[in-house]
Every structure is written in structure tokens, then in C-alpha cells.
Amino acid sequence: MEVYLGVDVGSVTTKLAAVNKNGELLGHIYLPTQGKPIEMVQTGLREIKGQLPQEVDICGVATTGSARYLAGVVVGADLVKNEITCHAMGTLHYIPEVQTIIEIGGQDSKIIIVRDGIVTDFGMNTVCAAGTGSFLAHQALRLGIGIEEFAQRALTSRTPVRIAGRCTVFGESDMIHKQQMGHQIEDILYGLCQALVRNYLNNVGLGKKIDSPIVFQGGVAFNQAIVKAFHEELKTEVIVPPHHEIMGAIGAALLVYEEVLSKNRRSQFMGFGTSEAKYHTTSFECESCPNLCEIAQLVLDDQVLARWGGRCDLWERVQAEEVK
């Protein structure tokens, strides 16, 4: 059976999705990255193999997410694609009439505007990670409640308090202040959800035409309280699609199918055996010029597989020479 794999290695979670050529989802994996992208990709490959039939033929594999280049070398990707294109592709597969995609992940948040099935505009959060999954997780931890419990408690709020959402540092001191004033935890939690949504719409969504149907996806879409806050702020329905947390991986898999079809090439996939290989990464400072770039390299059995991080292509060229 022909199968296409999408691997999305984000800052907080690693996602894998396997689809057949009709775009039907055959298997999917959702793992915490825990700062170990290579190991998590390997674990993911091992686990997804168990979900697929025995006589499976991987015809294409694509990587996306912030560790897409690293993951691409590990799995032997046929396509390395940015998250925005992948998310749009995945969502369009399930909800072809979508006009706005809200995606909030661990470290970044995006908005993608789609018209007639084509991405026409997008936005991403800037240097600051205010109001992303990491911030919510951190606040839940500080209040001593699990991230699952977070949503349930926030939903019971009756009089949410107003919390500054522009900056997480101010947001946190605001929360502490409200908590010391004696406000209910529930009200503070839902106030935080509202602040996050306001911040998202005023920052990432600034100047974007947010039309229905609106789809909300990414890890934060698990949080029903945020979904409710979006619904209240936008005054319209917000759809959380099935498999919303692995949409990027699904999109990558669909894109690699398209790629393989157009190029008519055999897949570079390393095989599931790659999940047993001993990869490690090292880095050094390149002293060839005053830029002093930090070059990272991926090593397998004393052999350097890839190098990146330079401002010029010196190390890519060295790499190409070595392969020859």
C-alpha cells in the first residue's frame, strides 16, 4: 500500500501523520518534543509503524515545523516545507471552504487567510511568544493545576477579571496581583484566556480580514476555554476540526504526495530502520570570517550528514564535496 508520511517537529510537540494517496489518514502520533527532536522523530517513526499495515510502501516523506531541516536529514525527506503552507494544506483537505485559519502552537501563533482554496495572506507572532501554548502551560504550572484542568476550571468562570495580555511579563504580574486581591482562580484563568485571544487578534491578526468559516487548530485548540473566548470575541462560530493538533503533519504528507506525483521520483526515505540509528549533534564556531557563525552538524557513526547555521554556504559546499 502506498503511504505518504508527514513529520512536524515543533518546539513543544512532535507530530507524525501517514496518509494514503486519497488523503485518508492511516495513522498519527503526537509526542512531546522535550528538547530532543531527533529522538522524538525516531520514537514517532517506531510508533507509527505499528499503526500501519505490514506491507506498507512509504512513497514520500515531508518534514515541517521549526526543526524541519534537522528532521529532514534524519528521515530522508523528499520535501522540507514551512509550517504555514503545511497547515493551510491540511485544513483545506478537511474544510475546503475555510477562509481563516487560527493556529496557536507551543512557541508561535499564526493566522492564515485563505480565499478560494489559496493562501492569500498570513501573519506570525514576532519575536515575542506572548500568548502561546508555553505561556499557558507555565501559568497553569505556577497555579499548581494541570493544563487539562485549566480549561475545565476556566469554563466555570462567571465574572472573568481583566488581565493585560500584551506582554507575558505584565500578564503574569497582573495575574498575581488579582490573585492576591482575592479573585477566584476560575475568573483569573478565564481572564487569561480572554487576554490571550485579544492579544492574538490585535497582534497576529492585525489588519487581517477574519471571515467565516474560521478554523482554530494547533495544540492550544484543545483548550475549550480559549475556543469559547475566541467565539465570544469574534461573535461567530469557531470550528475546531478533527485532528487539529496534527494538521501540519497531515498537510506535509499531502504536499509530499503532490511533489512525488509531479516529479515522478523515488522517495529518499531512510526506512523505519533509521529509528534505531545513533545520531548525535555537535556544534562549533566557524572562524573563516568575522561573522563567527555557530555551525551545527548532524553526525551518524562518525560521519557528518549535514551542517547548517552559517550565514554563507561554505559548510554546505564542504558537505557536498565530502559526499562526492
Partner: peptide, 8 residues
Amino acid sequence: RLEAFTDM
């Protein structure tokens, strides 16, 4: 951003 813009 550049990759996504170019793709688009």
C-alpha cells in the same frame, strides 16, 4: 516567513 510568502 520568506518560504511561506514565496510558496503562497
